[in-house]
């Protein structure tokens, strides 16, 4: 079991960044009320963030992740079950991988 100092530093910084949001947000917004504009913008952050992660990854990854994403979405729309959708997507990506 090894602990690399750079990795530990990254975990600590990630933990601090996370707590700055979890605890810091509550603390800050107890002092000042967020303006309606800030609230309106933050409402859209989770969705746009995941789009910004997924779309470039699909473009870069090519056929395998694209088919996988289509499979995931299809199972999700049909069943609304998260675990099943992830499994379906991985199976679709796996099929492309085997055919190559």
């Amino acid at each position: 079991m090894t602990f690399d100092p750079w990795n530990i530093a990254a975990f600590v910084l990630m933990a601090l960044a996370t707590y700055a949001c979890r605890g810091g947000g509550y603390w800050l917004f107890r002092q000042i009320k967020p303006s309606p504009l800030i609230r309106a913008i933050m409402k859209y952050i989770p969705g746009t963030l995941f789009v910004s992660f997924v779309v470039p990854s699909l473009i870069q990854g090519g056929l395998q992740p694209m088919v996988g994403a289509a499979g995931t979405l299809a199972v999700m729309l049909a069943t609304r079950n998260m675990a099943l959708s992830i499994a379906g997507g991985v199976a679709a990506a796996w099929a492309v991988w085997l055919l190559k």
Binding site: T18, R22, L49
Partner: peptide, 13 residues
């Protein structure tokens, strides 16, 4: 990490 977790800043309040 900070940007992804920003949503939590609005959850606490």
């Amino acid at each position: 990490t900070f940007v992804i977790n920003l949503r939590m800043a609005l959850m606490g309040p």
